[in-house]
Design a protein around this nucleic acid. Structure first.
Lengths: 337, 337
DNA sequence: GTGAAAGCGCTAACAG
DNA sequence: CTGTTAGCGCTTTCAC
């Protein structure tokens, strides 16, 4: 007869009416705040199930002055080598957000173009932000800070009071390098690192150098190349490097590693007989290589999830950790045997 | 003296008061709906600038029953070869959304796990959805459709009334294949294609076959391999294929292409002298190869932006295009000379 | 052309 | 423990 329960989504009022209660009681039953009789609460939950009630998040938002959204700053100009990382990280965040009934909003940024971030802040579309690739000059963090927007960054940050979540690149690289130092003459261990604009490369470098210090030796400067961010620099670096006859070469990322492997193949050098190879970053692109390449492994899903978890914690009032470092794994494979 | 304009964000009421108008008039001035004196409107805009007023999107949302968000379904289990595509696509969407004052919300999906999508729908967090990788069984589209959620899919869809935006893979592959047919004996042109689960591979196949039909010939079945989604299938396919002495091999994606190149190098075959190589998908991972690889190029940023634009159009009441096909570019490089 | 008032669906005092 | 009453900040009839 009365098909009022047919299409329209039920709201607090409906379930209140159905139970002969008031909206506020129902609201309390749901939120768990304030005193409420256990019995009433159960009734409410039952009714919720029956009517398939779901709260209207927008109304909740307006009332609580919270959006239940977090923003995720991702670079619009990432290289293809990095893209899988951001993508994976993002899924980790989305997963964690979902568990806590939040959502992740995409914020694209480019060098000198933070307009999307500004928009999102001004429109109050998010409660907090995760910065997946901090700007070299800390401008993103500053903008966030100036606007009183809680945020956490993945990686290093030049900004003062940034809360950090990151894979432990320093110790990962350090441990991998230490392993290689046991196996190769210290003065014939080479390093090939990408753009110094990315803080991760600084961490890698730090780890590399630390391992030498630990061993009481120091790196052969003519075998250490950083800031390799162009084809030209790459070929120059490699030819200079090879003259020095390195016994083992550590690559900062898999793109560099691939290029190097191609070059070595050209020159008829074989891995690991003539030269050993290791990479600081493990991607599927190297899977097809024979021999398989020794490398560091980080869990990007977990990294994203942890970052989201930390941020949501802060938003919930939890005292945040200054810095959270996630574990790594070292995979010794045939390329360094 | 009165520092009321110091910290608190101004709202409609404030600017109304400042001008001696009512909230509703100001609201009209901003939205442009309803009659309003041009003069008043200007005053309002001026005042908005001065007070740096920005509407509270949440309140607007509640009132209008719109979220100003769109959801973007991305796979949580994409391969690394695909990740750059999704990432790039996403930035295109974010960009377009920003221009139209909307935001993109991430929705991660896996095979048989649409829980994040369900959550977002039930929580009414978005006004519409873009599906970047439709499920093989159309389950995502069905869920959306059943819930009356407007959506558009990137790629093909098995679901009936899906609105589509895609790169024109069929004609791209067709044209590239046609070019190769001019240059190579039809019965010595090979194809190596990834998982048939992905609709894009079906399109690629269709394009490949069409080119043969156009030329009045047909493909050598013993040189056509589809569904190559594992290491094992790959090596089997390649060894069978090579026995057949192909003059030119077309790879469905760059990951396959890379593996193939590695294999050919192993066998001492050189490109393009012994065998020509082309790829249907162009990524930076092949950049390091010498010779450079002939391939199809699609603009993922534009694809994402177009999809977002279409969806926002629908949400705005525009009659949508059934299917929008985006242009491609063919880059003939040394690998097929 | 403009203003007053109701309402979007929920939360949060404040009473009872 | 529960009900009543105000809002949250904007849009939108409906009068004037």
């Amino acid at each position: 007869m009365n098909n009022k329960n047919a299409q329209k989504k039920p709201q607090l009022e409906d379930i209140a009416a159905a139970l002969g209660l008031s909206k506020s009681t129902v609201s309390r039953a749901i939120s768990g705040k304030g005193r409420i009789k256990a019995e009433t609460r159960e009734k409410v939950f039952e009714c919720i199930k029956e009517l398939n009630y779901r709260p209207n998040m927008i109304a909740k938002s307006l009332s609580e002055q919270k959006t239940y959204n977090i923003g995720v700053v991702i670079p619009m100009d990432s290289s293809e080598a990095e893209a899988p990382f951001f993508q994976t990280c993002l899924t980790g965040m989305a997963k964690e957000c979902a568990v806590r009934d939040h959502d992740a909003v995409v914020i694209g940024t480019e060098r000198d173009n933070l307009s999307q971030l500004t928009r999102v802040i001004e429109n109050r579309k998010v409660d907090g932000v995760i910065v997946t690739r901090p700007a070299a000059d800390g401008s993103i963090e500053k903008l966030l800070d100036d606007n009183g927007m809680p945020f956490i960054v993945i990686g290093r940050s030049v900004h003062e009071n940034s809360l950090i979540v990151d894979s432990d690149h320093v110790n990962g690289c350090r441990e991998l390098t230490s392993y290689l130092l046991l196996q190769n003459p210290a003065d014939r261990l080479a390093l090939l690192l990408g753009s110094t604009e990315f803080t991760v490369n600084k961490s890698r470098y730090t780890g590399f150098v630390s391992a030498f210090m630990d061993a009481g030796s120091h790196a052969n400067e003519r075998l250490v190349f950083t800031g390799i961010d162009s084809e030209l620099k790459f070929s120059k670096a490699v030819s200079v490097m090879l003259e020095e006859q390195p016994r083992c070469i550590v690559c900062g990322d898999d793109m560099l590693c691939m290029k190097l492997l191609a070059k070595l193949a050209d020159l008829g050098k074989s891995v690991p007989q003539d030269v050993r190879i290791a990479s600081f970053y493990d991607s599927a692109y190297l899977d097809s290589y024979s021999p398989p390449i020794t490398s560091l492994i980080f869990n990007a899903v977990e990294l994203g999830a942890t970052a989201a978890s930390q941020l949501l914690g802060i938003l919930g009032g939890t005292a945040p950790a200054e810095e959270t470092l996630l574990p790594y794994e070292i995979l010794i494979r045939r390329s360094t045997m």
